[in-house]
């Protein structure tokens, strides 16, 4: 894209927080019932990046996670698989092997996740390693310290450099919005990431509270919309962290539907970074199909 299209990141796009919250609250009033609910629950399931990002992660745990990802609920084999599993770089090979011959992607965090407090060279190596291990998608973090300093060029260049070493792998850029604090910063970071080549923009690492929130997600979706209008390029969205309930997932889908429209209602363009959400979606799906309220004891906790 030509340089003239890129906006001046020193300019701030005004965003009114109260207005954003009101919009979210209005969208939350959408009542999703019957067929539309079942459809959305399954759609949400198919959009999950089933995630484990802990220091104590083991190969065994990752393998379990992958089998859940492939077939979330054995009694209903026709349910979709989730979109991806998301792991640390040293677990990519394990996951890749467990998911071979399936449509489930392997995503890896990289770039000194979660803090991003390392030199660019190390971040590039981290990324190269994850890609070489077979990662289909890279979830990088931005350098929030540099961002808050106002060093936007640094952020842009770093993302562009990572994108370059990703090769075929899709790049998700984690803004860690909980550390950016204002919605104007969220918007600015979204724009920088998209112009620097992000395939997805993602709210959070899950290690900082608050993680994903709907107001933040709405602002990012609006950034994606404006970027699409301006450049014709679609960028995906991934809220991550703190989304545990099916009801919230549906609320996020409403945000997507009414901000970006139908084209984004696909795992190609929207993901949930979550772990416990999978089971709640499954419980709700089974409830919808059978009419009986479910207990977590009947769903494997992988």
């Amino acid at each position: 894209m030509s340089v003239s299209v890129i906006q001046d990141f020193n300019q701030t796009i005004p965003i009114d927080q109260v207005g954003v919250e009101e919009r979210v609250s209005r969208l939350n009033k959408r009542s999703i019932k019957k067929e539309s609910k079942l459809q959305a629950l399954k759609l949400a399931l198919s959009m999950i990046d089933h995630t484990t990002l802990e220091g104590k992660d083991s190969k065994g745990k990752v393998i379990q996670l992958c089998s859940k990802a492939k077939m979330p609920y054995a009694p209903m084999p026709d349910l979709p698989s989730v979109a991806a599993v998301c792991v640390y770089p040293n677990m990519v090979a394990t996951a890749k092997k467990a998911l071979r011959d399936t449509a489930v992607k392997v995503a890896s965090v990289a770039t000194a996740f979660p803090s991003g407090m390392a030199q660019l060279g190390i971040k590039l190596d981290d990324t190269r390693y994850a890609v070489s291990e077979g990662a289909d998608e890279i979830d990088m973090v931005i350098s929030r310290g540099e961002f808050l300093k106002g060093n936007y060029t640094f952020i842009f260049d770093e993302i562009a450099a990572i994108k370059e070493v990703c090769g075929e792998a899709h790049l998700k850029v984690i803004l860690e919005t909980g550390e950016l604090e204002t919605l104007e910063n969220v918007r600015k970071a979204s724009d920088i990431a998209m112009y620097a080549g992000a395939d997805f923009i993602k709210t959070s690492t899950g290690k900082i509270s608050p993680a994903a929130t709907q107001p933040v997600t709405l602002v990012m979706l609006e950034a994606i919309r404006d970027f699409y209008r301006k450049t014709g390029t679609m960028v995906g969205m991934k809220p991550a962290g703190g989304i545990r309930k099916a009801k919230e997932a549906l609320q996020y889908l409403v945000l997507v539907r009414e901000t970006l429209g139908s084209a984004w209602l696909s795992p190609d363009w929207f993901r949930f970074g979550a772990s416990s959400l999978t089971n709640d979606l499954l419980m709700q799906i089974v409830k919808q199909e059978t009419g009986v309220y479910q207990s977590i004891n009947y769903f494997s906790n992988d």
Binding site: R30, S31, I32, K33, K34, E35, S36, K37, Q39, A40, L43, R225, Y228, L253, R257, E258, L260, G261, S262, A263, L265
Partner: peptide
Amino acid sequence: LDFASFWEYSPA
């Protein structure tokens, strides 16, 4: 942007 062709809300 297309807001109508996928995932219609059921009557509520």
